[in-house]
Design a protein around this nucleic acid. Sequence first.
DNA 1: CTGAAAGCGCTTACAG
DNA 2: CTGAAAGCGCTTACAG
Lengths: 338, 338
Amino acid sequence: MSTITDVAREAGVSVATVSRALRGLDRVSPRTRERVLKVANELDYVASPTATSLASGRTQVVGVVAPFLTRWFFATLVSAIEKTLRQHDHHVLLFDLEDDTYDQRLPLSQNMLWKRVDGVITLNLPMTQDELDLVDRLGLPLVAIGTPVADRPNVRIDEAQAMRTATEHLVSLGHERIAYIGAVPSNKAHIRTPQARLDAFREVMQSHGLAEHKQWILGSDWSADSASADTHTLLASDDRPTAIAAASDEMAIGAMAAARAQGLHIPEDLSVIGIDDHALSNVLGLTTVRQDVAAQGRQAAEILLRSLGVATDGGDETEVVVPTELVIRASTAPPTAL
Amino acid sequence: MSTITDVAREAGVSVATVSRALRGLDRVSPRTRERVLKVANELDYVASPTATSLASGRTQVVGVVAPFLTRWFFATLVSAIEKTLRQHDHHVLLFDLEDDTYDQRLPLSQNMLWKRVDGVITLNLPMTQDELDLVDRLGLPLVAIGTPVADRPNVRIDEAQAMRTATEHLVSLGHERIAYIGAVPSNKAHIRTPQARLDAFREVMQSHGLAEHKQWILGSDWSADSASADTHTLLASDDRPTAIAAASDEMAIGAMAAARAQGLHIPEDLSVIGIDDHALSNVLGLTTVRQDVAAQGRQAAEILLRSLGVATDGGDETEVVVPTELVIRASTAPPTAL
DNA sequence: CTGAAAGCGCTTACAG
DNA sequence: CTGAAAGCGCTTACAG
C-alpha cells in the first residue's frame, strides 16, 4: 500500500501539499489539487488512519457502550448508530459491558477509551461517578440514549407517557383488574426506565380510582422467560387480573405465552399490552406502544457528530424526546366479564 | 494524560526501557521494571493506542462485518466475539453492511479496513472476489462464521444435518404432508445457508418416499412477517399440510402466529419446527434444532486471535462445526388425522 | 499557493 | 540490562 510520500513523489509536490489537497483545504491551486487527486487515485492511496490520528488527535471512532447487545432494543440502536456515523466517515468501536453473571456489568476503563475514540454514546447505561470523571478527564463528548447521564445530551422517549398510554388503553377498554410486569430489579435500582414506567402505571391506576394489588406487580427481570414464569404464578391464583401491562414487548410476549399455555384465550380471557413494538410484535398480534428505536440511534449519533464539529443538518438540540404511538392489535379487548 | 516520556523522566530511565518494562519484555532488570510499573501506575499512564499502532503496525482491533445486526443471530454473535476479544485486549470495530433498501449490501472498502484492523470476522457474509482480493492485499487474516469464505477458517453448524434433524423429527411423528418455509431468496442465491437447508429437507422427504408439493415450498425472506404472510396463503387452501419445517425460528414463529390467527391449534392442527433456538423460542413453546450461536462467535474470535499470534488455549483447527441438538417443545405432535 | 521541518507518542534494531 | 536514534505516516504552524 502506498503512503503520502509515494503520492508526493509521483505528483512532484511536497507531502504537506498532498495532505492539504486530499483533505480539501484551501490554499491549493486547482491544477495541483487535480494532479494530486489523480495520482492518489492511481496509487489506491488511503491515508493511514493510525498516522492521521496520531498527528491530528482525532480517531474518527465513536465508542458505543451497551449493557447488553443481544436484546432487540440494543441491537437496533447499534445498527442505526453505525450507519449514521459511517455516512460521515466515522466508525463504531463496540463495548458490550454485560458481565457473565448478568448481575454486575464491567466498568468503563481508560484502556477502552483513551486515544481510541473521539466520543461516547451510551445505550441505557447508568454511569458511575468514576466513569463520568474518566470521560471528563479524557475530554470526550458523550450522548446518552435512554437513561440520562448527568447533564449530557440525551435522546429518549417519554417513559412515563408511554406507560400512561398503555395503561389508559386498558382502562378505556373497561379493565379494572390490571397486573403489571417489569418492576424495578433490586440490583438495577439505578436504571431509570423501570421506575419511571412503574410510577406511571400507578399514577394512572390511582387517577381512575383503581386498586393496586401488591401481588400483581411482578418483578421479572425484563426477559420473556422470566415474565412467562411470573405470569404462570399470577394466573394460577383464583384472584386473577383481566389485563396485564408489561413494561416491554419481550415481557408481554412471555406473558401471552404463559396465559395460552394455561388454556386462556387472548384477548377474551386476558388482555396484554407492551411497550416497544418489537420486531416480532406485529406477527404475534401484540398491542403495544411503539417507540422508534432506530430514530433514537440516528439522532444520538447526529448530536455527537455535531459536538465533534462534523457538519450534519438539524438543529442543536441537546435534549430529544422521540414520540411514541399506541398500536392496537389483537391482544387487547374489553374484559369478557363486563 | 501522561505520555511515555513523563513516565521515563519520573522513573529516571529512557523511554525505550519504559516501553520494554511495561510490555513485559525481558532484558529489563526486576528493580527497574518495578520502578517503572510503580511510576506508570501513579501517573495513570496508558499507552496511546494510536501511537503504538503507528509504531508497531498493529491496532488490536478486529473488524466484525455483518449483513444485518438487528436479527438475534447476528447480535448474539457480535456480543460473544466482543467479549472474547476483550479478554485478550482486542476490540471490535463494527460494520453493518445492510443497505437501506435491503436488497443489496454495501461493499467492504479499503477505507474501512486499511491500517484500522488487524483482522476480519465475517458473519454469514458471502464475499465478492473484489472484497477477498482487498483483504488479501491488506494482508488481513479472516475467519468466516456461517457462510464460508474461500478457503479461510470457518466456524458453522452442519446446515444439512440441522434441517435433516428437523425434518426427520416431523416424519418420525407420522407427518407426510410437510411444507417448507425459507427457500432461497432470488437476490441472495449466493448465500449458502438457505440452499443447504432446502436441499436437506428435500433429501429427507425423498428418502421417505414423501411427495414434495411445489406450492408448499415457501420463499419468505427469512423474516417472521414474511413467513406469516406466506403461511396465511398456504393455510387458506383446502389442500394444506399437517406440518411446517421452517429454516429459522423467526420464520417458524411467524408461521405459528399465522396458523393461530386462522383459528388452527398448534400442534393439534399443525406442527411447526424451526432451527436456532431463538431467545423467544422457549417461551413460545417452539420445537427447534438448537445451535449454540455464542459458541460460534467465541471460537471464531479465538481462531483469529491465534492467527494474530495472540496466545489462546485450544488447538489450531481451522474448520469448526458446532453441534446442533433437537429440542422438543409444544409445537410438534403426531398429525391428528392419523 | 507551496515546502521544510517539527511534532504526535510510541517501537525497534543497534550499540554498548 | 539500558539508552540514543531512527522510523512509523501523517498534520500543522511557520516561512516564503
